[in-house]
């Protein structure tokens, strides 16, 4: 016996299980990052002087990174739309571009982090609470990016075989991965101004 509604929508909710599951997961992610944002606001309001992000951080690089993530988000949704149009080649192409942008994000982040460590005196998480929360929040976000790359990479490579056996289910999976990836993008959209610009 198979579990119902793994692929088809349940009539009264209009959803398949995976989609509801991923939205619930994202709800918990909102609260996870919410806890960190709350901590940020609490710490910042609680002290008299809080450095401006520009004192420590590199705005042009982060702007470029923002553009990378936005682009990867649009190519992600395009890859799903390609599957909807039955165009597997385009799916592969868009997914590859998504992965490249995601890697680009990591590379830039790597340069940003190493510049902080190489600075004299070094800018470390322990230097002050601004840097502490900067490293914690972006670090957690980077972990989410890495997780996303692994999953997207899987569906680019071995996981994509499912397109031949069960295309509808495969398309659903890409939709779910997309929801996660857009969420990671969305978190960055808030992290960027909050940490770098304010």
């Amino acid at each position: 016996m198979d579990i119902p509604y793994t692929v088809k929508n349940r009539p009264d909710t209009g959803l398949y299980n995976g989609k509801l599951g991923v939205w619930l997961f994202l709800a918990s992610e909102v609260m996870l990052f919410g806890g960190l944002f709350s901590a940020y606001i609490f710490l910042r309001t609680g002290v008299d002087d809080w450095p401006a992000g520009t004192e420590y951080l590199d705005v042009p690089l982060a702007t470029l990174n923002t553009l990378f993530l936005i682009s990867s988000s649009v190519t992600m949704v395009m890859s799903w739309a390609s599957l909807k149009l039955n165009d597997f080649k385009k799916y592969k192409l868009y997914t590859l571009i998504t992965l490249l942008f995601a890697f680009g994000f990591l590379v830039i982040k790597y340069f940003e982090y190493s510049a902080k460590f190489a600075h004299n005196p070094p800018y470390l998480p322990s230097t002050n609470n601004f840097l502490g929360i900067y490293f914690t929040m972006t670090g957690l976000h980077v972990l989410h990016i890495i997780g996303g790359i692994l999953v997207i990479g899987y569906f680019y490579g071995p996981g994509s075989k499912m397109w031949n056996s069960d295309p509808e289910r495969f398309t659903n999976r890409i939709e779910i991965v997309g929801l996660y990836w857009h969420f990671v993008d969305l978190v960055w959209i808030f992290l960027f101004p909050v940490l770098y610009l304010l």
Partner: peptide, 17 residues
């Protein structure tokens, strides 16, 4: 800055998601 970020977030949520 928060207004702009909220607009961007809404766009992502409403259209991409």
């Amino acid at each position: 800055a928060l207004i702009v970020a909220s607009i961007k977030g809404t766009l992502v949520a409403c259209y991409f998601m």
